[in-house]
Amino acid sequence: MRDPTGSVWRMAQTLSRGPVTGTAKPAGKRKPFLLDLYSTAVGKKYVMAITGILMILFVVGHMIGNLKMYQGVDADGVYAIDHYGEFLRELLYPLLPKYGALWIMRVGLIVTILLHIHAAYGLTVINRKARPVKYQSPRDYQIASFASRSMRWTGVIVLAFILWHLADLTFGWVNPDFEYGEVYRNIDATLSRWPVAIFYIVANVLLGIHLFHGTWSLFQSMGWNNPRFNPWRRWLAAGVATVIVVGNVSFPIAVLAGIVEHPGVS
């Protein structure tokens, strides 16, 4: 609904005079189930939470996989992490063709991330409409943390990072020394560049902040709430965020500090 001045979009408003009656609407025809569920803000939050869980699992798995950097070379003289890359490409082969499982996961992740973004966008629009005129004096927030209030920004920056990260280490577009399949070498090459390393560190810290609020928040959104485990939700969130940040930030630091060996140019 547009307000009388035509300048801002608003949610429904109540300021009309005269008697109020018959306000409870009979349950009308509903949209198909999933769309119906997704049409409310609470439904969108379920989507945020569920896609969030999937991405947390991915990020944790991704980080653990990358720890193979520290394993150096296997007995056959090939870097362990390169084997790991090979393993992912051949996952479930011959049940699925090569790259099959990988692409299923990739498509799943892409859908997940798109849903996460779409729901976040939808919620942002709702929230803008819910307060079209901002407070004209500074707010004094009591509880809302930097993490919770910066979700949109950390989210957007992390998204940008992911795209760059794909271009860097999946497709090699922004990594002049990129060599397909040589995971260790590529990581080492890209992280040896100072600006890239700093970008990785900053982006992962922001990711950690995003995860800190997101991990706690998803319990609320899904309604997983129980006095017995409620205090642990904050600890879990802090734990996930810390593990991810420490794990991921360790790579550029290790590379720059020479903790992991530089492979020879093949």
Binding site: M11, A12, Q13, T14, T40, A41, V42, K44, K45, L123, I126, N127, K129, A130, R131, Y141, Q142, I143, A144, S145, S148, R149, M151, H213, W216, S217, Q220, S221
Partner: peptide, 20 residues
């Protein structure tokens, strides 16, 4: 919840409401 949705924004779990 669906009536609330017509008028109000969405909860992103800031916790400011509890404090206020």
């Amino acid at each position: 919840v669906e009536t609330m949705d017509e008028y109000f924004g969405s909860c992103t779990n800031h916790g400011e409401c509890e404090a206020a």
